[in-house]
């Protein structure tokens, strides 16, 4: 084979290799487990803090894209004045599984809200593999499940997403069902925004990922009150490069909570009781009144 043919062969190989890689998998970092644990089982610090009684935690299984996914419906704090009035569907972040998110669930539970949290496909005990399509399907199934429960008020469902979970939140709120309200915490604007943040070029997110993750696009289709929270010290989803894109695209009514000193992971913990009050105030004004 002469050199010219070798070059042609190399070019053909390049073309033939097209589509053999996708970076979607790098968006997700799940941990699979055999059994879910109570927080105190894997974190001794929880021993004196976790206060949700077992009787209030109901395991739930759903089917999404033919795979069984697992979650927990947590009935709100019976001692709260807001007990059982509002149900929150919580979409967690890209790491690990439900076990990691109990602290956040407990905060919402303390406020009196019912909370349904589930693991996306490939997370925790849930079957399958995570992908953009899988997360959207899982989110829609979770929302259908919550709406189907006879013991909650369907008109008072609030969708709450954190980080990558915000992509599922806006998808469900814009394309599946208009909820009573939406809460987005540490929301990236889009895959495109993430890409431009690192590559500097004005390329679209489709260059690196098939997942249609786009809060900037979908938030404009949300027809309910919105609360956006973001840490001013978030060094991952940097405030100035993401928040204005989503915030400007969102319709009124919308509330903001920009938290000085908070990073990507710690808004509830930095704010403490102020976090409770902000969420309660938002839901009271926009959902309960």
């Amino acid at each position: 084979m002469n050199m010219r043919n070798r070059v042609l062969l190399a070019v053909c190989v390049v073309i033939a290799c097209t589509r053999v890689l996708s970076l979607d998998d790098f968006l997700f970092d799940p941990t699979t487990i055999d059994e879910y644990l109570r927080p105190e089982d894997f974190d001794p610090e929880w021993e004196t803090r976790f206060i949700i009684h077992d009787s209030l935690i109901e395991p739930v299984t759903l089917v999404s894209m033919g795979n069984t996914i697992y979650g927990f419906f947590v009935r709100g704090n019976p001692d709260s004045a807001l007990h059982n009035q509002v149900s929150i569907l919580y979409f967690h972040g890209k790491d690990e599984n439900i076990n990691r998110y109990w602290a956040r669930i407990e905060y919402l539970w303390e406020m009196g809200f019912n909370v349904f949290i589930f693991d996306y496909q490939g997370y925790g005990k849930s079957e399958g593999s995570p992908s953009g399509e899988a997360l959207f399907s899982d989110g829609a199934e979770a929302l259908h499940y919550l709406r189907s429960r006879a013991d909650i008020d369907e008109s008072r469902i609030v969708l709450y997403g954190w980080s990558i979970g915000t992509f599922v939140t806006t998808y469900c709120a814009a394309d599946v069902m208009h909820p009573a309200a939406v809460i987005l915490e540490s929301a990236p604007a889009s895959i495109t925004a993430l890409l431009r943040d690192s590559a500097l070029l004005n390329l679209t997110g489709s260059y690196v990922a098939d997942a249609d993750f786009d809060n900037e696009k979908r938030v404009g289709d949300i027809a309910c009150p919105l609360l956006m929270m973001h840490g001013r010290a978030d060094d991952f989803i940097v405030f100035d490069r993401h928040v204005p894109l989503v915030w400007d695209a969102a319709h009124e009514p919308k509330d903001s909570l920009w938290v000085e000193g908070a990073g990507h992971d710690d808004i509830p913990f930095v704010l403490g009781t102020a976090y409770h009050q902000a969420v309660i105030d938002f839901i009271t004004v926009h959902v309960l009144q």
Binding site: L23, F26, L27, D29, G93, K94, D95, E96, R100, S163, I164, S186, P188, L194, L195, S198, A199, L200, L201, L203, Y207, V208, D235, F236, I237, G263, H264, D265
Partner: peptide, 19 residues
């Protein structure tokens, strides 16, 4: 995205378009 940035974001490959 818990835990901040991650090496998983190999989006960086495209920065190489610069050269």
């Amino acid at each position: 995205m818990v835990g901040g940035r991650t090496s998983a974001y190999v989006f960086v490959v495209l920065l190489c378009c610069l050269s």
